[in-house]
Design a protein around this nucleic acid. Structure first.
Length: 418
DNA sequence: TGACGTCAAGATCCG
DNA sequence: CGGATCTTGACGTCA
């Protein structure tokens, strides 16, 4: 069983992706962006390996406009070696990667032009995974598409167009239930006709339910049975609703107790769980730690090192409470640990606590900073006290100083990235 | 025609 | 000029 996250790593240097506008998508520009993005991808892979995360979704945006009809950029030829070497790192680490074209890749559209674009896009995704020499367990997860007033007809169109795809796309394609058109029942029906494996998405199922005689777990099992041996472990998407968010939007972070209840109820844990959540790797590590049967305290100490200033900036008393919880303990209640951190995270901005955290962090930096850095800090501090600037300006400046002095401890702190 | 989702790029504003 | 903040892009469907 693996738990993973999608597309981007929060709080890790050199992992952010570059983008460009279509008007700037010249070959030389795309070459530069692709090169930068492959370095970022490798840094993300390294991060996953280092954090022992074994499931990861690769962003579709590594090669911008890769399937755009007007753009001819031979990324496979130019970066083939690079991709191959990233691929062998992935394979060596036993990391399972996947890709997920967005909601605008619509294979069942009545417009032939849209279908052709969708096919080109699927070709790109398959070619990318092929270039990594990824195995058949590296999947491309796709939504079925539009309904166009007649779901039976639209499903038939999907099946018809699916048959037009090359075999190397067939071996990677997986379909997922979505939040307003194709329910688990609809997707399973298409799966029966085509043999395409199905990803069960819990939140989409909650919002767009079907087969209500079955429990969620029975449906996970049913979807899991569509996966063949060569497809790897069945995979599901797991997310939680954002409180007060629009219909079906993903939560900012995973509520650990809720996840643990879901996980505990899973009759067969031999599946992979892709989290869809705003805070990405933070929730992945949290969930992985939560289900670990005998988690070494060291792991929570490492987490605490990354969270502590974030907590301090919300509440000094909660900071002390968690610190005491970890002190001299051989065992710590992982769920309780994360519940405290998440509780602190949801607290509204408290000027006094923010200032306390800012001063605390500054204590690590003021000895070795330049005069200009010091002056700017004092100025921003005054402005924040007066209420004429936001705390983010101060934090940005502190992070800049931390980088200039290469203070590893601060550079990795979530305080700067949440 | 705008909402949907996503997050930098790009544009504009401010001191 | 640098930094902060606001707007746009790129995609297809559907109300």
């Amino acid at each position: 069983m693996s738990i993973g996250f999608a597309c981007l790593v929060i709080g890790k240097l050199n992992t952010s992706l570059s983008h460009c506008r279509i008007k700037n998508a010249t070959t030389s520009n795309l070459r530069m962006i692709a090169c930068a993005n492959l370095l970022a991808l490798e840094a993300m892979i390294d991060y996953n390996i280092q954090q022992e995360i074994s499931l990861f979704r690769i962003s579709s945006d590594i090669i911008p406009f890769a399937s755009h009809p007007e753009i001819k950029f031979a990324w496979q030829r130019e970066f083939g070696e690079c991709l191959k070497s990233i691929g062998s790192k992935i394979k060596r680490a036993g990391l399972r990667v996947s890709m997920h074209p967005g909601q605008y890749t619509v294979l069942n559209s009545p417009q032939e032009q849209v279908v052709e674009k969708a096919i080109a896009d699927l070709r790109y995704h398959a070619a990318f995974l092929d270039a990594l020499s990824a195995g058949q367990e590296s999947k491309i997860i796709l939504h079925v598409g539009g309904v166009y007033g007649d779901k039976t007809k639209a499903s038939a169109a999907f099946i018809k167009n699916y048959k037009r795809l090359d075999p190397h796309i067939h071996r990677r394609l997986v379909i997922e239930n979505d939040d307003n058109n194709y329910s688990v029942e609809d997707v399973l029906q298409i799966s029966r006709a085509t043999g395409i494996p199905v990803v069960f998405d819990n939140l989409h199922h909650l919002i767009n339910p079907s087969l209500q005689d079955y429990s969620q777990y029975e449906l996970i099992k049913l979807c899991g049975s569509t996966w063949k041996t060569d497809d790897g472990k069945p995979k599901i998407h797991y997310s939680q609703v954002k409180a007060g968010g629009s219909r079906g939007s993903h939560s900012d972070t995973i509520v650990v107790r809720e996840f643990l209840d879901f996980y505990t109820g899973l009759p067969d844990k031999d599946i992979d769980i892709m989290l869809e959540v705003k805070d990405k790797n933070l929730s992945a590590i949290k969930s992985i730690n939560a289900v670990h049967p005998d988690l070494p305290v060291r792991r929570l100490e490492e987490e605490w090192a990354r969270y502590k200033y974030l907590v301090l900036s919300k509440s000094a008393s909660m900071y002390n409470e968690i610190r005491n919880m970890l002190r001299n303990k051989h065992r710590v209640d992982t769920v309780h640990f994360y519940e405290m951190i998440d509780k602190a995270r949801t607290l509204p901005e408290n000027r006094e606590a923010e200032l306390n955290a800012v001063q605390h962090v500054w204590g690590y930096l003021d000895q070795d900073c330049s005069e200009a850095e010091c002056k700017r800090f004092q100025k921003l501090l005054q402005q924040y006290t007066e209420g004429t600037t936001r705390v983010e300006s101060l934090k940005r400046h502190l992070l800049k100083c931390a980088f200039n002095q290469n203070v590893q401890y601060l550079k990795n702190s979530y305080y700067f990235y949440i």
